[in-house]
Design a binder for these strands. Structure first.
Lengths: 334, 334
DNA sequence: GTGAAAGCGCTAACAC
DNA sequence: GTGTTAGCGCTTTCAC
């Protein structure tokens, strides 16, 4: 634990040059002779010198850092998006500060505050819970894009999300194609994402001339909740279930099997999100896959653009999800 | 997008006082009169003032930030630990910078470098892949604790991990208690964690007077790999499988069922890690649960201690894992 | 209690 | 090409 790290000044005196030359050399300026550069690099190496990001950020008045706020680290959907965003902005020379709201709106606010104190140059909000006025305020302070939540539009803030309405339509179309008519939707209820999916379901059902039947999954889109909701829904004798997300869909499958029925022979099940986990052979869940990589890349790209031109009009990208046919859907029994 | 944020100087002149007074007031010093404090707070509020963390960190020569490096964001085990660590250090006034190595050793190194440039005051390395000499170097620069990897001991670096050897023993004991004798271990192979689990398995088998049979899961501890390994292992006609982690265990279950056998009636399966997912009713995996919360809290605590006294001797905490009896293990058939 | 002044480590004009 | 200088926004003596 060196009591104090070497500074640019130490490097300069060891190399026998001035601070500014060292600074130039270290940032790869062409106006440094090769000889000096070599000397400086050697001195830096020997001293174990490392740039102080705080000092640098203060001097250049840019942090070269963007902040990422994620609703909760445990959701594999978010993890994937974060990963892509980090990779993408890094290529453009930005560091990232990643914080998790821990599924707690209050913590989300304080974490956000921390990010801003660090003078992040941009913000990526992944499935946050921030109220509209907070969002609006932040957007005036710093370039900002929300991912996975597109229900609230505030000036100057880009949104990128998957098209939940179209995605839900894909699910219904798939089931209808398999001959299903009695398709019940297990919805996540009041949150914006679930509502969009429910809306997509309804409009697709209508388009096919079928009757919608929505059953709310109480208590969040977990497998336990999906289990409970499916148990109830089974009394309506559906031949297929379209469930608002994959975790709940897994719970629904368990409920169906526990009721002595088979998936997909008796009841087909399709989820939403396309989590990797669904590919587990003993689950093999048919699902609507979100374009996670595309989502992350687009979000990063939009943010980078907005950092360059902060006043550009807000964009809204809706990326297409796609059907992932696996083993839990099959022909309707007649 | 305000072109430039208000500084302490702006607050001072709006409140009609000096910069230093504002600084004192903002950090809650008692040597500021209530009247002045109120004025200052109002001015700050009105201006939308926010401390510049870089400037502060430069002035106080402390970043009040710790860095967390995680092997990969997707593993739910790591996500949980990260969450706990973040919560814990936050309570002690530290911010966190979280970076993911993205399962790529090279990226791990550069991310680490970034962390250090930000002058983090401590580092939590969760299941990293850093070579020993890098580890040793870092440990001399900054307080450091590794979580989930305890195979390499370097001076001044604390380690906290679950006791894989004991945990594997728990799994074997459980199976033996159920009457199993022919217990095959599906191991992750060359990585340190897998080796500890294999060692624990072997010693427990020996203690019970049983013969060890280890089958390596090639290609990482994924469900697909587990499936393949189990398929092979079945030719040995085991009555139980102890698999090195939960994902691989799920693959193993699929293999068993695909072979026309039943879990747990024909073959019992027990995994390791106790991931939340294993609780899914249609998986219901018996497992050895790592004490994730305890791991995270202990790691944070150790780091905080070490930040206070950097020269203290390195600690090594092995936390106990516990048996999570669910549905995939049952009595051995006779 | 309050203000002036120095300095944290770095960069960016600007001279030479 | 290289050195000098003046800050970036903040904290922290030290006088008053």
């Amino acid at each position: 634990m060196s009591v104090s790290r070497p500074t640019i000044h130490d490097v300069a005196s060891r190399a026998g040059m001035s601070k500014s030359l060292v600074s130039l050399a270290l940032s790869g300026s062409p106006k440094v002779s090769d000889k000096s550069r070599a000397k400086i690099e050697r001195a830096a190496e020997e001293l174990g010198y490392r740039r102080n990001a705080a000092a640098r950020s203060l001097a250049v008045r840019r942090s070269q850092t963007i902040g990422i706020l994620v609703l909760d680290l445990h959701n594999p959907v978010f993890a994937e998006i974060v990963d892509v965003v980090q990779r993408t902005v890094r290529e453009r020379g930005f560091s990232t500060m990643l914080v998790s709201g821990g599924n707690d709106p209050a913590r989300e606010q304080t974490e956000l505050e921390t990010l801003l104190q660090f003078q992040v140059e941009g913000l990526i909000l992944i499935s946050h819970r921030l109220p509209e006025h907070t969002l609006a305020r932040i957007a005036t302070e710093v370039p900002c894009v929300t991912v996975t939540r597109d229900d609230v539009a505030v000036a100057g803030m880009d949104r990128v999300s998957n098209d939940d309405v179209a995605g839900a339509g894909l699910a219904v179309d798939h089931l209808v194609e398999l001959g299903h008519k009695k398709i019940v939707h297990l919805s996540g209820g009041a949150n914006p994402v679930s509502q969009a999916r429910a809306a997509g379901y309804e409009s697709a059902m209508r388009a096919h001339g079928l009757e919608s039947q929505i059953s709310i999954v109480p208590g969040g889109l977990t497998d336990a909740a999906g289990f409970a909701a499916a148990t109830t829904a089974l009394s309506q004798q559906p031949t297929a279930l379209f469930v608002a997300n994959d975790f709940a869909a897994m719970g629904a499958i368990a409920a169906i099997e526990e009721a002595g029925l088979h998936v997909p022979d008796d009841v087909s099940v399709i989820g939403y999100d396309g989590i990797t986990l669904g590919a587990l052979r003993n689950i093999n869940l048919t699902s609507i896959a979100q374009p996670l990589v595309a989502l992350g890349e687009k979000a990063a790209e939009r943010l980078l653009q907005r950092i360059e031109s902060p006043l550009a009009p807000a964009q809204h990208d809706k990326m297409r999800s796609r059907l992932l046919t696996r083993g839990t859907t099959g022909p309707a029994r007649s």
